[in-house]
Nucleic acid binder design. Structure first.
Length: 310
DNA sequence: GGCCAGGGGATTA
DNA sequence: TAATCCCATGGC
């Protein structure tokens, strides 16, 4: 497999993208790059900020977390994708990484709204909203509820390794895809005990059965631009274990419904501390009025900001 | 509408 | 070591 290099990419940083809680199947490597799997494709992505050498400098790991916590990281540079081809990059990863969207324009527009957002964007300026598979997002955010990010990752790893299919070998280990709705639909909660999902096991199976009954295309069709946010939200919240929070995450991270503004514990904290709002209703209305169709982008900048700076 | 159990582990006290 | 918390939801 060849390597693919994209030069002079702006508004991009792998730490911001893979550490902002939107995806759970990316693993940070010692060199600061990320290896992950999406729709059965395994890839390693390394971001090299402008002005830095790509290979083996003595200044090891220039993009490590401890650095980023102290000061905002530069978000312009080149991306090196390994274990992929030019064809696959053009046909898949480019869209997955949302590289065709002008985040500079989004950042300028949001920065004008208020000083808090401007500061948040300064910290997470390399965020991109990944375009994930619908079923993966649904499964991931069912597991994410009332849960910690490291444990969410562990649950998803266990699910793939035990019940998914082999996708390929890379960097000395096998990678597995997630179990299909069909696979999970035929199981009972106790069959999943090895994955330590707790009470979420019955949600996964219940939802898998509903997806099987309606057909996966019915779920995927919710990503159609012709389907409104409200209609898709309504559809998703009918699934077992899917409430407003999980639905809004699935809509944002896999269905391109960018006005979605997921409110979790952290976001409620941000909205109260930085914007002085008390009720969830107040927060939703504020987001809608202030950020409008860019609500989802705003949410990600704020979420990353509060997680980095406390 | 408010309350609380659901699992399990990470984090904090 | 104990208590608390976690990218919530369903059921009462």
């Amino acid at each position: 497999m060849e390597r693919v290099i994209q030069r002079q990419v702006a508004d991009f940083h792998t730490d911001h993208i893979f550490d902002c809680g939107q995806a759970f199947r990316w693993q940070r490597q010692r060199d600061g790059s990320y290896t992950g799997i999406a729709e059965g494709r395994i890839v390693n992505i390394r971001f090299i900020p402008e002005g830095e050498k790509s290979q083996g400098g003595t200044k090891a790991d220039s993009s490590c977390f401890s650095d980023n916590r102290k000061r905002p990281a530069p978000c312009r540079g080149r991306i090196v994708l390994s274990n992929t081809s030019e064809e696959e990059f053009e046909g898949f990863w480019k869209k997955y990484l949302d590289l065709d969207r002008d985040y500079g324009a989004i950042k300028r527009e949001l920065s004008q709204k208020d000083p808090v957002m401007k500061e948040a964007i300064r910290w997470g300026g390399g965020i991109r909203l990944l375009r994930q598979e619908k079923w993966e997002a649904l499964l991931s955010f069912l597991i994410s509820q009332n849960n910690h990010i490291p444990r969410i990752k562990g649950c998803i790893e266990a699910l793939s390794e035990n019940f998914g299919e082999k996708a390929g070998q890379y960097q000395g280990r096998w990678w597995y895809s997630l179990p299909s709705p069909k696979t999970l639909a035929s199981m009972e909660p106790e069959d999943l005990s090895i994955c330590r999902l707790g009470y979420r096991a019955k949600y996964l199976i219940g939802t898998a059965r509903q997806v099987e009954r309606d057909g996966l295309p019915a779920l995927e069709q919710m990503a159609d631009p012709a389907v409104s946010y409200e209609e898709a939200f309504e559809y998703l919240t009918r699934f077992c274990g899917v409430g407003p929070k999980v639905a809004s995450c699935v809509l944002l991270f896999s269905m391109e419904k960018y006005k979605s503004f997921p409110l979790d514990v952290w976001m409620k904290r941000v909205m109260e501390r930085l914007y002085g709002q008390k009720t969830e209703k107040e927060m939703k209305a504020f987001a809608e009025n202030t950020f409008g169709d860019y609500g989802g982008f705003a949410q990600q900048y704020l979420f990353y900001y509060i997680r980095q700076t406390g």
